[in-house]
């Protein structure tokens, strides 16, 4: 646990450092970004005042150390472009993205589980069809899937809103967009391990004892087969966050992904660093949780 925390802190520090210098490499004057972007007619005095206030006139190393000092005390700083502190801004956006990602993860799990169960039960054809569906689903780019879903469910059938509205109905399409490709990945892995587990000695002995096929599947196989998929969920969560950038833009959902895309194009350094840190933190926590879940599920006690 201690090692984990130390490693986590190291990753956070390195992520902040890398982002700080990378964003500084982006061409453009940060003082200009503070004063309403490149098109504004900020006076030289105003620019100088902003440079002094934000410390842009200091050497880069000094700016970096200051930034670290602030971050260490949990202060994410102030957005250049949005006229507000970063921490409350991101806190307000975090909920929406987390909800989206967790729901998508859950739905992907269910879809994958259903498909894997069906395709291992249904013989050779089901196996081939299931495999085909999964590979195709895994290859669907979010931006295309979102478009196709909007055409199908909003424009043609008119049953679901094309933008994210408050309430569960508005979440259906964004969640599906993220869940389907993920289900493709999870489904493949589950099916592989289902098959392996079904052929394992303990299942053979259960069959010999006369247990029903469905019972075997749920009692014995699921536990073993779910393990690799649980291990994968850490990765899955990270890729959902990347996907959120596209999905939140298309479905007009407030969230971290959209904030990030805006902040990057506006050179809003504190917001970019803030989002990256939150995502890194979520990633670290998620990895920790999946490690623990893996350890619980795995009878041998440890998995790679």
């Amino acid at each position: 646990m201690l090692v984990h925390s130390a490693g986590g802190l190291f990753v956070l520090w390195a992520v902040a450092t890398l982002t700080f210098f990378a964003v500084r490499l982006i061409p453009g004057d940060p003082a200009q970004a503070v004063l309403g972007g490149p098109g504004s007619q900020a006076s030289p005095e105003a620019l100088a005042a902003v440079r002094a206030e934000y410390g842009f006139d200091q050497p880069l190393l000094v700016q970096y150390l200051r930034e670290l000092g602030r971050l260490a005390t949990g202060d994410l700083g102030r957005s250049y472009a949005l006229n507000m502190d970063v921490a409350p801004l991101l806190l307000a956006q975090l909920g929406g993205t987390l909800l989206l990602a967790l729901l998508a993860l859950a739905v992907a799990w269910l879809l994958a589980l259903a498909l894997a169960t069906w395709s291992t039960l249904g013989g050779k054809t089901a196996w081939a069809v299931g495999s085909g569906i999964e590979i195709t689903a895994a290859a669907l780019p979010h931006f295309w899937l979102a478009t196709a879903l909007i055409i199908l469910f909003s424009t043609w059938l008119g049953v679901l809103p094309p933008i994210s509205t408050p309430g569960p109905v508005g979440l259906v399409l964004p969640v599906l967009t993220l869940a389907v490709p993920l289900a493709g990945f999870l489904g493949q892995i589950m099916r592989e391990s289902f098959q392996a587990a079904l052929e394992s000695p303990f299942v053979l002995s259960a069959r010999a004892r006369g247990e029903g096929e469905l019972g075997i599947r749920f009692v014995h196989v699921l536990r073993h087969a779910a393990l690799p998929a649980v291990n994968l969920s850490g990765w899955a969560f990270g890729s959902l966050i990347s996907g959120a950038v596209v999905v939140e833009t298309i479905f007009a959902r407030p969230g971290l992904g959209r904030t990030l895309l805006n902040a990057v194009t506006l050179r809003d350094v504190p917001v970019v660093i803030g989002v990256v840190l939150i995502v890194a933190l979520a990633y670290i926590l998620m990895t920790l949780v999946t490690d623990l879940a893996g350890a619980l599920l795995d009878p041998r006690g440890r998995t790679a």
């Binding site: 992520v15 990270g238 990347s242 990057v264 995502v279 990633y283």
Partner: peptide, 22 residues
Amino acid sequence: NRLLEVLFAFPGLLLALLFILI
């Protein structure tokens, strides 16, 4: 390994996004 861990903590899209902006 630590370096890789750090790179993995970045959302994949962001790494590409930053590179392109620079």
